[in-house]
Design a protein around this nucleic acid. Structure first.
Length: 465
DNA sequence: ATGTAC
């Protein structure tokens, strides 16, 4: 008897809290019942929850739909009249809305410090490219919907020029060993120790999404996510400790797929219930880290981060093996995440980076451009005013909608062929000209990171449409 | 970003 989220949605269980409570009860008490019996009961319960209030097995779910015992506890907060100061890098590249969102963030009563990166643009709550340090709380929408969205680069024991010789094999391997889009998955079983983590048994939501995590392991999703091979030029004395020169390298960008999205949604829903803010700031609702929900989110967020890392590891492992390439080094970093950090001597805080690269002193990181412009291997300078952060890319110069209106498929094809880039899948929303010029964005953050390598994409796979 | 959408 396997009931999936989909089955529950169909019978009207549309919120994740109800769905996870249902799955929790089913897994404990309905092992021997048929799917039909259980679904019929769940439908009846939804229609008349009062009937199940005294039922030992189902009362928890009935209470969810018809709470009687006590009203939900919440606290109302006001914003400060004036925002706390924060530093902006590359301000001339940043739109007004993103700046306004950051000002709002700096008026939150829990806000301690913040910074805006040169690729910033408006987002849901905190802008993409926003860094926010708060006191003993975590803001799900300041981490982002794609928890643990990250970069990973593997440098191979092969010269950049051998890309030409490998081109056909690489294209075939990308088609066979990566998966994009929301439906389906890889055609062969994936295994990774992250799936054995006990956290997957510790909350109803994580129990519910373990199956999906298994099916989606090693896949890349959609939007701006990619897997690409290209030419890496490493500088002398680079953070990877590899000799100066050129290398063939693999770069990937993706996150925690359905698992992270479900965690983000569930806990931002809870945050908005317990933390009431003025309407314009409600997406900044936070969870106190001393509460059970706060602890659950923190644990789940960390699991989603490790899952996203595991997805990249699978991609790199599968492709290296298929192509018979020997990895020399790997560098990887989250850019949608929260960490506990010491922001000034003796002052610990929760630092959210939503589309921002950690850039502590000596810390390696990856800042991609677009599918046909350079990406950079960087080394953090530990600049306190940026909360030890840098941009996570060039940033969009125009919206997806505008890019669709502006560019045709044939124009993009021509652009890519002139740039010497082969694209598998992809769409005009990701047209390089829809992005800011990475060569202008990098100088705006030279006080934040040193450049140790320059990567030029050559064979790129992205989601189609 | 995501099998979305109070």
């Amino acid at each position: 008897m396997a009931i999936r989220t989909k089955d529950l949605s169909k019978i009207g269980y549309t919120d994740n809290v109800a769905r996870s409570k249902a799955v929790n009860i089913i897994s404990k008490h309905c092992k021997h019942d048929s799917k039909e019996t259980v679904l019929a009961l769940l439908s009846d319960l939804l229609e008349d929850p009062g009937k199940y209030k005294d039922n030992d097995v189902w009362k928890q779910l009935a209470e969810h739909f018809a709470p009687t015992i006590e009203e939900k506890q919440f606290t109302t907060y006001l914003l400060a009249d004036e925002p706390k100061g924060y530093k902006t890098y590359g301000g001339k590249f940043i739109d007004t809305l993103a700046k306004q969102q950051m000002e709002l963030a700096m008026r939150l009563p829990v806000a301690l410090a913040g910074a805006l990166m040169p690729d910033a643009h408006a987002g849901y709550g905190l802008p993409i490219g926003g860094v926010l340090a708060v006191d003993n709380a975590v803001i799900p929408y300041a981490v982002g919907v794609d928890i643990g969205c990250r970069m990973s680069m593997t440098v191979f024991d092969a010269k950049a020029e051998s890309l030409k010789r490998y081109a056909h094999q690489i294209k075939e391997a990308l088609k066979d060993y990566t998966h994009f889009g929301m439906e389906g998955g890889l055609p062969f079983a994936q295994e990774h120790e992250v799936l054995d983590r006990e956290e997957f048994r510790s909350t109803p939501l994580l129990r519910m999404f373990h199956g999906k995590a298994l099916r989606q392991l090693g896949t890349s999703g959609g939007g701006n996510h990619f897997v690409e091979f290209g030419e890496l030029e490493l500088a002398a004395g680079n953070v990877l400790n590899l000799p100066e020169g050129n290398y063939m390298a693999l770069l990937s960008h993706s996150g925690s797929r359905g698992l992270g999205a479900a965690i983000a949604r569930q806990y931002s829903d809870i945050a908005r219930e317990v933390c009431k803010l003025p309407r314009e700031a409600q997406h900044f609702a936070w969870l106190d880290l001393h509460t059970e929900a706060g602890q659950e989110y923190w644990m789940s967020m960390n699991l989603a981060g490790d899952y996203a890392r595991a997805c990249h590891e699978q991609i790199h492992h599968n492709l290296s093996k298929a192509l018979g390439l020997k990895p020399l080094a790997n560098v990887n970093n989250h850019h949608n995440f929260a960490w506990q950090e010491e922001i000034t001597p003796g002052r610990h805080a929760i630092v959210h980076r939503k589309g921002a690269t950690p850039a502590g002193k000596g810390q390696p990181g990856l800042i991609p451009g677009s599918m046909a412009t350079p990406g950079y291997l960087v080394c953090g300078r530990g600049t306190e005013e940026s909360l030890c952060s840098a941009s996570h890319g060039a940033g969009r110069a125009m919206s997806r909608q505008k890019a669709k209106e502006q560019f045709t498929q044939s124009a993009m094809k021509k652009f890519l062929s002139q740039a010497g880039v082969t694209l598998i899948g992809g769409n005009v929303e990701e047209m390089p000209l829809a992005y800011k010029d990475i060569e202008k964005v990098m100088p705006a953050q030279e006080s934040l990171v040193d450049i140790h390598g320059r990567f030029i994409p050559r064979i790129v796979r992205m989601n189609k449409e």
